[in-house]
Nucleic acid binder design. Sequence first.
RNA 1: GCCAGGGUGGCGGAAUUGGUAGACGCAGUGGAUUCAAAAUCCACCGGUGGCAACACUGUGGGGGUUCGAGUCCCCCCCCUGGUACCA
Length: 847
Amino acid sequence: MSGRSEVQILSPRRGSDYGADLSPRFLFRIGKIMAERYPFDQIESKWQKYWEENKTFKASDNLTEKPKYYILDMFPYPSGAGLHVGHPEGYTATDIIARYKRMRGFNVLHPMGWDAFGLPAEQYAIETGTPPAIKTAENIATFKRQIQSLGFSYDWDREINTTDEAYYKWTQWIFLQLYKKGLAYEAEVAVNWCPELGTVLANEEVIDGKSERGGHPVIRKPMRQWMLKITAYADRLLTDLDDLDWSESIKDMQRNWIGKSEGAEVNFPINGFDLSLKVFTTRPDTLFGATYMVMAPEHPYVQQITNPDQLESVEAYRVKAERKSDLDRTELAKEKSGVFTGAYAVNPVNEELIPIWVSDYVLMSYGTGAIMAVPAHDTRDYEFAKAFDLSIREVVSGGDITEEAFTQIEAGVMVNSATPDASFSINGLKPSVAIKKTGEWLEKTGKGKIAVNYKLRDWLFSRQRYWGEPFPILRDGDDVIPLSDSDLPLTLPVLDRIKPSGTGESPLANAKEWLEVVDPASGKVYKRETNTMPQWAGSCWYYLRFIDPQNNDQAWDLEKEKYWMPVDLYIGGAEHAVLHLLYARFWHKVLFDLGYVSTKEPFQRLVNQGMILGMDGEKMSKSRGNVINPDEVVGQYGADTMRLYEMFMGPLERSKPWNTSGIEGVYRFLNRLWRYFVNDEGGIIDLDDAQPDTETLTMMHASIKKVGNDLDALAFNTGISQLMVFSNHLRALNKVPKSALETLLMLLNPFAPHIAEEMWSLLGHSDTLAYKGWPEYDESHLVKDTVKLAVQVNGRVRAQINVEVDAAKEAVLELAFAQESIKQHVQGKTIIKEIVVPNRIVNIVVK
RNA sequence: GCCAGGGUGGCGGAAUUGGUAGACGCAGUGGAUUCAAAAUCCACCGGUGGCAACACUGUGGGGGUUCGAGUCCCCCCCCUGGUACCA
């Protein structure tokens, strides 16, 4: 970069607002403006090129030299819309920490990649004929260009892409591990079938009975699906949360999702059949209050036990329930529906015969698919009993069951709860105690047992799509034959045209040659799976591939894994708080059990960045027209300003609105810095080589301390504020000490690395700031000689005094009472108390 | 309904965790500079009263603890995110 004069010719402003006016007057104006703006575009491209050419940010594979720090972003799905200002928020935060940790002497792993399988590219292919691979590559190129324009310090040699064969080879390999461990199985599942999209959707992709994408209607249809047995890990996924450094709210979301509840399983013999209806309840204490039972419409016993004269109405109800989409279920949720089977069950505690009903308020997918109904102490049962005039019996006193169900566990006392022979009674107990006692009794008598249930369901792991990882299996009729490792990867066939099969199978059903595999020895024909894996698959383990991205022999090297794992800091959007993080944790635990990874959890510290809202305070969306384009911001203000502003807006984890004049503020800060310290010849102004004055020294060391502490706490906004305070202080000096300016640049470097590097080099340094040691602060410079104390009278500040640090109470009070304003407020009053908090405050209480 | 987080100037947000509320920035006002505007620089900037020193008041609302509360306790209101017939 040459001198300032050249800088003035090349305007950083894209001059569109000036039109074609080239009058002398206009040129004069341009000249003035340019003199006032620092040449960020030249500086930024210069340093980005420098970092790239020197591979400045390459993570070292020397696994012993330095302590490691693994800092990870949630890698993006490269959509056609390009980067959104929300993306760089998290990326900037991680980049600042990555740069900070490098300066702190860590070997930093900070990689980026692409979660590139997914429905949009496939839909685009169906609409336009463009192969998903082509469209995906284009999108990635755009994302990469945009991300690189912000000067992030990724180690690009480790870039990965989930749609690369070399990558998904190992995704398939992990699937085989799961399969071999018995954690992958096939099942006929009533799934969310969307005729419009020609695919089955996961629950999380269905919103109010419509597809999340496109809003098409969704109905339920049974299909053969791959499932992963995540429920086998439910308990570990729950308990291992405790040791993680994640926000409580995210941990709670996961806990709720796993939904562990403790209670009992109870068997109710069915009258006249050699069957018993098993139910799960969290309130075994209320067994004596069970006045009827309910089975889910899909319950296997329904047809068997239904009385012949009820058969017609039960069957009609069952069919109706089956057809109901989720939307219908929600809509009808307000009113309970159901039908009597004509059959009765025997309540094991009192031998009473109670009617068995069928209703869709009981779900087949939770517990046993049947419940004992205790209308007096369960709101749902209460509503149902009221609707169908079933009896309601109080077994916990303390509420008014003529009004509503009484559901409290700590209040209330058990009543009407003893077996006819009086051998078992819980009368008089608190429900919480009765729950335990009943559980023990059920175990002892064999009428039931203590049990635990989870809300978490097994993971529906197949999609009827082309653009996903093919399953590495062959099919021989109903038999499943896994491919051997040497047959991996099983690559996607290249299709001339991707179109729905129409049968509900994926477009792969159209690829006849790919689909059928002939065994050359026997001539036997096997078929491939037409389902592909969901998008979650690739993102479940990408953090492991970053450790060893080019390895062709194994998914990752075990030694490297031991060194780099766990991820020390993982930052991403809260939308992945549950599913992605739960699925990835599940795979990680499986890999841990198999000995492929050394930690039981993958992500030690997790932070969710808040959303960046539009200027109107609303969520950014095309329809609202409030979307901010990062390219425009970078073009107009530069990457350093963009980075700084995104961090200055407010705490990382909170949602906050974008504000264009706010960005002007940080832009002015960088401009002032440049303008003040860089002279007209493009060099640094004359600096003072002498030791800074006391005040400057204090400011300098206080800044080192505060910025460092704030970075450790991810409190970027207050760190930047301190940089502004420090720089304002330096600008007010007659002569700026060189050491102070150097310190400022080092502190600024993680936040605004381009301008920091440029000014650092203008100071005559030939090294990069990237590995410059982070400055150390000296506590002795932070200790002041005197301190300003507020003097309060009755809690109101009436004066301020300067005293020596740790001054004696007597001396402080003497000075305080000497103040005119204090005398005034104390005069003629009785002093009740004199409080002196050393170096903090004085409070005189009078009456 | 349930779970979690949050309500501080005109705006984004600070506040050493009980010790001078409003750091830093934006917007605004006044001044310098300019033929003029923009940019830049300086000053002011919660509200009410006062020429002023200053006084009163003020962190969603109401109570409480304390010499002292944005911060701790109790009750209530509002906003955001998650979840929803999970027995």
